[in-house]
Design a protein around this nucleic acid. Structure first.
Length: 189
DNA sequence: CGAATTTGACCGGCGC
DNA sequence: GCGCCGGTCAAATTCG
């Protein structure tokens, strides 16, 4: 698949000249942040975020067979979950869905969702022991938008993280953490 | 030659 | 109980 993807983590490709700054304006986090159970029926999107919480069960390589997926497959009743499910979903205006956010992702699946002509790609953080997953698909309504969903919290820093004199860690201009706390303050530049 | 992607198969939940 | 549907696996293939 030859794709004119951007060679490096830099968003230099030509944007649709909307006369708007692409990243500070078009980036709308938590556009449809449907957490919780699938109670709220969104008018535009009827897909329900899967309520499967994956516990970071120790052995990363200990994956054995497809049957022993997760013995802790509890029901929706959250009795004693130690791991909260961190989900962040947002929508970005981009013509490319290959967005480098500072982490290395390994694609592990592609599926076409019903009611949408666009397939959905599944990525996983390539760092060992980091079970953060990522889901990328195009908006079924506006194919100009890309719906990205992050699942989990990284247990390591971004490879693009830069340190200035052992001071407070600063992020590179083209990288941002997925921590929900730092999601609000968009310190891009 | 090793690593990452591709892609169909498979698995498990949920609705009927 | 069966079939739909979304998520993941893993063998094969491609890529660097």
């Amino acid at each position: 698949m030859d794709y004119p993807q951007n060679p490096k983590p830099s968003y230099n490709y030509s944007y649709i000249n909307e006369g708007l700054d692409p990243w500070t304006t078009e980036f709308q986090p938590s556009d449809y942040l449907m957490l919780d159970d699938g109670f709220g029926e969104e008018d535009s999107s009827s897909q329900n975020m899967v309520s499967s919480e994956q516990v970071a069960s120790g052995s990363s390589t200990g994956y054995s067979g497809a049957t022993s997926r997760n013995n802790s497959m509890q029901n929706g009743v959250n009795k004693n979950k130690t791991e909260e499910e961190h989900r962040v979903a947002f929508r970005t205006k981009s013509d490319l869905e290959i967005m480098d956010d500072g982490y290395k992702w390994r694609k592990y699946g592609k599926k076409s969702v019903k009611n949408s002509p666009n397939p959905r790609n599944y990525y996983k953080c390539s760092s060992s022991g980091c079970n953060v997953k990522k889901r990328v698909e195009r908006d079924r309504e506006d194919s100009r938008y890309v719906l990205t969903s992050y699942d989990g919290v990284h247990n390591h820093e971004s490879p693009c993280m830069v340190y200035y004199n052992n001071q407070m860690p600063l992020m590179a201009s083209n990288a941002w953490t997925l921590q929900p706390s730092s999601l609000h303050s968009s310190s891009f530049s």
